[in-house]
């Protein structure tokens, strides 16, 4: 599945309330941007809606950087 990295970055910035430029490809949302558990669910929901996929609760940690989200989508 082809992933639109900039769309994902903009979605994450919108949810966190930060600038797009604050989110590098390998910035960890939880450790570096203090994203909480609710915001992680929102980020995953945005990805699920855009790409019509289902992310398991046990896989949330695979979606905590832009790079990891893109990789996860490309593997699908």
């Amino acid at each position: 599945m082809k992933a639109d990295k900039e769309f994902i970055r903009e979605s994450v910035a919108d949810i966190i309330g930060c600038e797009v430029s604050d989110i590098k490809d390998d910035t960890n949302f939880v450790k570096e941007l203090e994203v909480n558990s609710i915001q992680m669910l929102e980020i995953v929901a945005a990805v699920e809606d855009e790409y019509d996929i289902e992310v398991k609760a046990s896989d949330l940690s695979k979606y905590d950087t832009i790079d990891k989200i893109v990789s996860a989508l490309e593997e699908m």
């Binding site: 669910l41 929901a45 699920e48 289902e54 992310v55 398991k56 949330l60």
Partner: peptide, 9 residues
Amino acid sequence: FEYLKCSST
């Protein structure tokens, strides 16, 4: 509930 990862799929 699905968004909250609570319901079984």
